[in-house]
């Protein structure tokens, strides 16, 4: 169900482990990065590759917060809300983003462009408040700065 290149990556990942099922976490990541979120087809595929049953893959996929079972939009805005960021204005940022995008935390904009979430510590306390968009960090944020960042996104 994936391109030959990704299939190869999956083969290599499975080979790394003495037990097939140990490759479960990386395989879900690969599938998610490929498709944006974890689809039912991907769950069935991973289960088959690792000699598991779908519910075993599903258990793991629902356990971790960085696995997404629903489409998460093009840009996943993850605002840190742990102590340092909170003290430096994370809540204002969240408030600003909710108003600007007209969505609540956990929701996706109707055009599917943005999803807003709050996350625990991003390990960027020295540059608080911080936000991660997909895999990129943005630091020392203010509402104005957030507006500029979003405007520049392709």
């Amino acid at each position: 169900m994936f391109s030959p290149e990704i299939e190869k990556k999956i083969d290599n990942t499975i080979e790394k482990y003495p037990h097939k099922r140990s490759a479960l976490l990386p395989l879900i990541h690969i599938a998610q990065n490929e498709q944006g979120h974890i689809t039912e087809e991907a769950i069935a595929y991973i289960a088959e590759r690792l000699d598991l049953v779908p519910v075993e893959v599903y258990e793991v996929a629902t356990f971790y917060s960085m696995y997404f079972l629903d489409p998460i939009g093009k840009y996943n805005l993850q605002v840190c809300r742990t102590i340092s960021c909170m003290l430096c204005g994370a809540y204002d940022l969240i408030e600003h983003l909710q108003n600007k995008l007209n969505i609540k935390i956990g929701q996706v904009t109707s055009d599917g462009r943005f999803r807003l979430t709050e996350v625990e510590c991003l390990g960027s306390c020295s540059t608080a408040p911080a936000m991660q968009i997909n895999f990129d960090y943005h630091e020392n944020l203010t509402p104005e700065k957030v507006d500029q960042i979003l405007a520049k996104l392709p």
Partner: peptide, 21 residues
Amino acid sequence: NALGKIFRGTHEVIGPYGLGM
């Protein structure tokens, strides 16, 4: 293999594949 532990923490439930999907 019909049952699994779905979601986590206080949200965790026992259920079949696809529960909540």
